[in-house]
Amino acid sequence: MNKLLFLPLLLIIIGISKHTNASTFSVKTATDTVRKKLVHPKEAMAGADVTAILTTMRDKRNDQEKVVALKEAVKDKGITIDQLITLLNQFLTDDSKIECAEYAFAYTTNYKDFLKIMDIFSQEDYKHKLEDFYNKARKW
């Protein structure tokens, strides 16, 4: 008789523990997606660093390889908007330019001038995308 009561009780406990784990996971996931305030670097990389990145990018065969090179080079370094514009001008397509501009935003030292980048885009859609990105990013 005790065995018959034990099985339903065990199933109830397992069901509760699964439910508890699921709700705990949902709360954890929700808190993980909350963004921390973005802190831009104070100092930009030296001109020699930008020249080295340019050389690396020019050695690449296509925009996708250049995107990877730029992202790797800028990661964890400060960059001015003018330096970024110089690097973005190495791309042939606006798609690559906007991808890297949005990525590099977090590393810009003078981010308030970010919309200067709009001048390098040939299509108005990309200018609007950049402006929308900037307006959202300022709120982080």
Rank of each mutant, 00 (worst) to 15 (best):
F25C: 04
A48S: 14
T51W: 13
A137M: 08
D132Q: 07
S23N: 15
I13V: 15
N110K: 01
L130H: 00
F105A: 09
A46Y: 11
D113W: 00
Q90T: 03
Q83N: 11
H128N: 08
G47M: 11
L5W: 02
F25A: 12
K75L: 08
N89R: 08
A73Y: 06
D82M: 06
R35K: 10
K3H: 09
M118C: 07
K71M: 12
V39C: 09
G15P: 02
T108D: 03
H128L: 13
A30C: 06
K36N: 09
D49L: 11
K127T: 00
D125P: 06
S96L: 08
A137T: 03
K127N: 00
I120D: 01
T80Y: 13
A30Y: 12
I117A: 11
K42A: 14
T109H: 04
G15F: 14
A106K: 10
M57W: 05
Y126L: 04
A46I: 05
Q123S: 11
P8F: 01
T80C: 03
A69P: 00
A52P: 01
T108N: 01
S26D: 15
A22D: 15
F114S: 03
N110E: 07
R138F: 06
Y134F: 03
F25G: 06
H19D: 13
M1N: 06
A52Y: 03
K28E: 12
T56G: 00
T29I: 09
Q64N: 15
M45P: 02
T29M: 07
Q123N: 05
K129G: 01
L10M: 11
A30K: 14
T108Y: 05
T80G: 04
I14S: 10
K71F: 05
Q123H: 11
L92E: 12
V39T: 12
V68K: 06
K139S: 11
I98Q: 02
K36Q: 07
K3C: 07
R138S: 04
D59K: 06
K129E: 12
V74I: 10
T56W: 09
K129Y: 11
N135C: 06
Y107M: 01
D32P: 01
I53R: 05
K37C: 00
H19S: 15
D132I: 05
K36Y: 13
A104T: 13
T55G: 11
K75M: 11
L87Q: 01
A106R: 08
D32V: 09
I12T: 13
D32E: 13
T86F: 04
I12R: 02
T31I: 10
T33K: 11
L130T: 00
D119Q: 02
G47W: 10
L92W: 10
F6Q: 06
L5G: 01
I14N: 01
V27C: 08
S96M: 08
A106Q: 05
N135F: 10
I53F: 13
G78I: 02
Y111H: 14
T86C: 04
D63E: 12
R138I: 12
K77H: 15
N21F: 14
L88I: 02
D82F: 13
L38N: 08
Q64Y: 15
K129T: 02
L92G: 14
V68F: 15
H19A: 15
D59V: 02
A137G: 05
T108G: 02
E124F: 04
R61L: 14
K97W: 07
N110R: 03
S96A: 15
G47C: 08
G47A: 13
Q64T: 10
K37Y: 08
W140L: 15
N21K: 12
F121M: 00
F105P: 02
L88Y: 13
T20K: 09
L54V: 02
L115F: 05
